[in-house]
Design a protein around this nucleic acid. Structure first.
Lengths: 343, 343
DNA sequence: CCAATTAATTTACGCGCGTTAATTTTTATT
DNA sequence: AATAAAAATTAACGCGCGTAAATTAATTGG
């Protein structure tokens, strides 16, 4: 932190006693210069605190150090949480993450990708809406930039996908619920905004078949991202009507379950796995708040860290390889059963 | 969306039949050119879809169209929600919001501000940690860029502050609680990470004095951002010990209240304002999930939209004025009492 | 219709750095 | 110590646009 303000790389190079092209090389990749010169530069860096002009830097570089991160909705704590880990992993690796939320709107997802184009990102990590996404826009983006999908898969798009194995995780939950009480019905949204929902329904059907149980699916009306609201209103209606035909409800995700718990409380239905309870409710995702619902929610924990780290490391592998992966990689992490009190 | 890819503004200017400097002027501010030429440019724009190189643009421009938004923790739905509205308001105004979360770390808040420096933002909206923030860093930033604080105030820093009037809001809640049952004690963290907590404690004390009631404050150990956890553990301990000396607890914020509700449920304490209830719990903030707690949480709603819009419009006023405001403006929105079932 | 004003054009430079090619210096190898 | 290989230096160009000054064209208003 010296006094004389350094205006550009020219001046800084002069001060550090290294030529400008070498300094430029250093900033591009510190390991690409001899350790003795690296030391010189870093000494000067400590004394004079200079950082290259981002805009001039990126103007001519083909690939910047920017990593785009696009999630459907940051107001959903699940995405906030996973985005946080992805972001930190990028910083860790010396990149500049640019976090964009699509605020629940597929159109804004497209806009976000277009905005990212202008920033010439080295790569992009995208949790897409799925069927609601602008598939062509994402495909086009995939052709132009290294793209890794996470959370929600889209067939053939992106060079890799990282997510949770819904078939394993749902099966795990169904197995547990069948062993410990009445077999579950399945509660979800009629028009889910996420492809995982479809996988989970399918997984539920298969798992119930395997257990020789008759599946029952209840689909709630309502669109958008107010899952708790929908879970509360529609789930509450079904509870009041005693429509489920079983005392065990497996919700497609925790947010629906949180809504249903709220409705059950309002109806004075005691939720839990004890003998005195009327109802068991289970969820999926281990939403950050699921530990604090009443009662605490039995659910499936997604491997946040695993997904985040794998997505980031996968992207970086292809960045280093400087070419598309020979084949699309799909990595599915297993869900863990989190037994709390609600089921 | 034409076929021949346009490489730069030169080519685009040629196609649109306007000189490059004028086109440049247009992109800087569409209203600065004659409407006839504006129309020509926009026609060409529709046909050929060109957008200027962001990096080249910002290299020489003093003020970019970037607006920095820095919040302490995006994983907290309160900040996610308010950041969302701020972001949308910026886009609405034709700026490029850059959303940065400090992930609960004041050091990262400093880093975020430093990163923003490199992007030459036109202005920055900051929800600071407060006392934990690197005050000097923020002051230095304030000197170099138009800065508006929101949510948490810091004396003399930023050209404006927008937040909630904690004295009004807490008084409103205390008033309600006193009228409708036993006067509340106050539950908070011993080392709150947010200056609003201190204001709220002060407000509680004053309000209780005004109602000629003896205040009682309970401070939970624990640091960090796991408010629910702390509310549950520490609040639960106090509940189990029957330490409060009143059946009414006013929590410093909703997240603590959510934790305490969870603990109360575990202790089989019926929470609510009915005759058959053991305990009343109230919060503050109208956290997005407070509608779905068991029972739904009585709380104070902050005016998310008001705060977001006011912060953004305040910043834009000073951007247009191109100079510091004559005096620092503080805008406090009133909280609204949200009567649900918990108190 | 002409002068006064306003806007667009032409010309030219510079921003700060990436990058390349030719050359020189340093390091590693035998 | 001689040679090969690796790294740094020098010199120079270009990226795409902002911006300024001088000039020309278009608009306004009386």
């Amino acid at each position: 932190m010296g006094q004389p303000k350094i205006r550009n790389m020219e001046e800084f190079a002069a001060i550090s006693g290294i030529s400008r092209p070498t300094v430029s090389k250093y900033f591009n990749d510190p390991d690409s210069v001899r350790s003795s010169t690296r030391k010189k530069i870093e000494t000067a860096l400590k004394k004079h605190d200079y950082q290259p002009n981002v805009f001039a830097m990126n103007q001519n570089r083909r690939k910047t150090k920017n990593i785009g991160i696009v999630v459907p909705n940051l107001a959903d704590p699940f995405f906030a949480e996973i985005a946080r880990r992805v972001e930190l992993a990028c910083i860790e690796a010396g990149y500049s993450p640019i976090l964009l939320s699509s605020h629940g709107s597929p159109a804004m997802e497209r806009d976000n990708l277009n905005s990212l184009r202008a920033l010439k990102p080295a790569g992009v990590l995208l949790a897409p809406f799925g069927r609601m996404s602008d598939t062509d826009a994402i495909k086009a983006f995939d052709a132009d930039f290294p793209l890794v999908l996470f959370d929600a898969n889209m067939a053939g798009i992106g060079q890799a996908f990282v997510g949770t194995n819904n078939f394993q995780s749902i099966d795990l939950m169904v197995e547990y619920l069948c062993r410990s009480g009445e077999p579950p019905c399945f509660f979800e949204m009629k028009f889910p905004s996420n492809p995982n929902a479809n996988k989970r329904r399918q997984a539920y059907l298969e798992s119930m078949a395997r257990h020789r149980q008759t599946p029952r699916i209840f689909q709630a009306d309502g669109e958008g991202w107010n899952f708790e609201e929908i879970g509360s209103t529609e789930g509450g209606r079904l509870l009041a009507e005693n429509a489920f035909g079983t005392n065990t409800v497996l919700c497609s995700n925790d947010r629906l379950a949180i809504g249903m718990l709220s409705a059950a409380y309002g109806l004075d239905l005691r939720v839990g796995h004890g003998a005195e309870c009327h109802l068991r409710i289970a969820g999926h995702d281990d939403h950050p708040f699921s530990r604090f619902t009443c009662p605490p929610l039995t659910t499936i924990a997604q491997d946040y860290d695993g997904i985040a780290n794998r997505a980031v490391s996968g992207l970086f592998r292809m960045l280093e390889a400087e070419e598309r992966l020979p084949s699309r990689e799909e990595t599915l992490f297993e869900g863990r059963l989190i037994m709390r009190d609600s089921a």
